[in-house]
Design a protein around this nucleic acid. Structure first.
Lengths: 329, 329
DNA sequence: TTGTATGCGTTATCAT
DNA sequence: ATGATAACGCATACAA
């Protein structure tokens, strides 16, 4: 009979099976051992419902099979879809995921990195808004959407290409007076390239364009004011708008319709992200779809890669256009 | 000068500060120590950028400050909002969150429980679809929405009350021929009480009602067929519909409008959950809002509570109605 | 092939 | 108040 109510250890298993400690360890780790021994150990394990203590194991092996993931929050559908995919990618590689929501707070981000380091995670995947994030260099870090410098690999969509694609699609659909609307961090990050690509395509096509760019946390009404300013006699100055995210595109469509402007007949709108109603139903709008699964796979692959010397400093993954009702096609 | 590139340990700090190991430990853990000693240790910690190894600490103390959270996925907005709130609740209590997405797969759920046990988590919070989930009883488990029996605390919204509330609200708004539509698990779980509450209120009010209930994974078209069957001469047999989730309500509104039925003029619709566009914008429909933050707080509070003897076996938290455009008010 | 002993980085119990 | 030392549960090099 056992003594206490606490979880059984290898020692308990060894005693139960009548073998030595080392033998149990070997069986657990799949190292060859005499058939009769293996059987006895396995029986004892089953009988005691023994579970390896990964804390003891991690302490010994310095491998925790745990990766920390940091995102601003989980309510934004793009972030939650991303985390969902990362979770899958980690699970398929037998790794656990430690999740931190930072709420866009640089101080919390820094604090969480410290927590992750204490936890001796095998790596960190983050979508950070802290340009000065400090990470000790003995833990591999992969960044999503923010380029921290050549020594820290960054994974992102092809934002520039996506911006171009949006402009080209609108042009193809007959639009000749375009606008780009963005709300976002003033910090340089990859998504900012959506604008650059958009502008570049507009100039190549020789098409007129207007930009409306405001900082994070600016209320949406700023865009509504902008639209209203460009509304003359029930007609908008633009016939095509590229919005930096689906969220903004959705709000824009709402505003315009409430102003009596028809979408997509009078003005066509393209968003960015490719998120869906309830995660798996319709698109919110015509959009440039980010390859979320591929981003997740790439991040996980890179963060678990032992040889960090061959890591690229930036990986841009291909996006595609998807029709969601706010463009003619 | 240090020797290797691996992370510094307490020993390194002790050597650097010229004090004994135990002294360093005390400083780290805030146990009183001579002022001059404390200062020297703190300097050494800063200089070496020392981080406690929580694996070693956990091994000693049997406390990991980690809670495992299991949900089917993160793309469904209700689940992701829930996980977001749980994450906050844990963070405010200085706990980490280990996240597992189970994809509704009972086998994966069981596997993850084993992983969590190995990880020696301080507790598990799960929203499980595995009625036979086995958890060793030395790790506290709190269940969301599924009642596993008196010994496992379950936290849920007041689903019954919410069902009543939906029927009453529709009645108040003038509806006299109601319908309830549900897609969901055949397994008994708390959300099934939405139907019971709905029926109970209908009978109290003496109002006619129809039920359309199908199993999980039934395609939505089953509901569309149902609606079409009840459409006679452009007029629906019902003037009020309660849908088991906002997701179903949203699809229903779409179907009805495409059939030429006006919402809310001809038929009023109420969903359940209270999720929002992009996590923080408008509601998708008029709905019974689940108190997600409160559910999260309650789960965390209960899972971290040391004295498990006083845990209630079921906690139902109050819901409220919110207008989202698919009812008259 | 199997058993024994040491140490991973901490905390906690001792003497000092 | 401070410094030495024994665990915690496991992996592993080494001895049998």
């Amino acid at each position: 009979m056992s003594e206490t109510t606490s979880a059984p250890t290898m020692k308990d298993v060894a005693r139960e099976a009548g073998v030595a400690l080392g033998t149990v360890s070997k069986v657990i780790n799949g190292i060859p051992v005499g058939e009769s021994y293996r059987k006895r150990v396995e029986e004892a394990v089953a009988k005691l419902n023994y579970r390896v203590n990964s804390y003891a194991k991690g302490l010994k092996t310095n491998k925790t099979y745990t990766v920390a993931v940091m995102v601003p929050n989980l309510v934004s559908p793009f972030f939650s879809r991303l985390v969902n995919s990362i979770n899958r990618a980690l699970a398929s590689r037998k790794h656990r995921m430690l999740l931190y929501a930072t709420d866009y707070d640089p101080a919390q981000e820094q604090e969480y990195v410290i927590l992750a380091e204490q936890q001796k995670v095998d790596g960190i995947i983050c979508l950070s808004y802290n340009p000065e994030l400090k990470v000790s260099d003995n833990v591999p870090l992969v960044s999503i959407d923010r380029y921290f410098g050549a020594q820290i690999p960054c994974v992102a969509s092809d934002n520039y290409g996506g911006g171009r694609m949006a402009a080209e699609k609108l042009y193809e659909n007959g639009c000749r007076k375009l606008a780009f609307m963005r709300i976002g961090s003033r910090l340089t990050n990859e998504p900012n390239k959506r604008k650059d690509g958009f502008i570049s395509a507009c100039e190549d096509l020789g098409v007129e364009y207007t930009l409306k760019i405001v900082d994070d946390f600016t209320p949406y009404s700023a865009f509504e004011d902008f639209l209203r300013e460009h509304l003359r006699g029930g007609k908008l100055d633009f016939d095509g708008i590229f919005c930096v995210t689906d969220s903004l595109a959705y709000q824009t469509v709402r505003s315009l319709r409430s102003m009596g402007v028809r979408v997509p007949e009078d003005v066509q709108i393209i968003g960015f992200d490719g998120v869906r109603y309830f995660g798996d139903q319709d698109l919110f709008c015509s959009t440039i779809v980010q390859p979320v699964d591929q981003i997740a796979e790439t991040c996980v692959e890179m963060v678990l890669e032992k040889d960090r010397s061959k890591a690229p400093s930036l990986v841009c993954l291909p996006v595609e256009f998807a029709w969601g009702g706010t463009t003619l096609k």
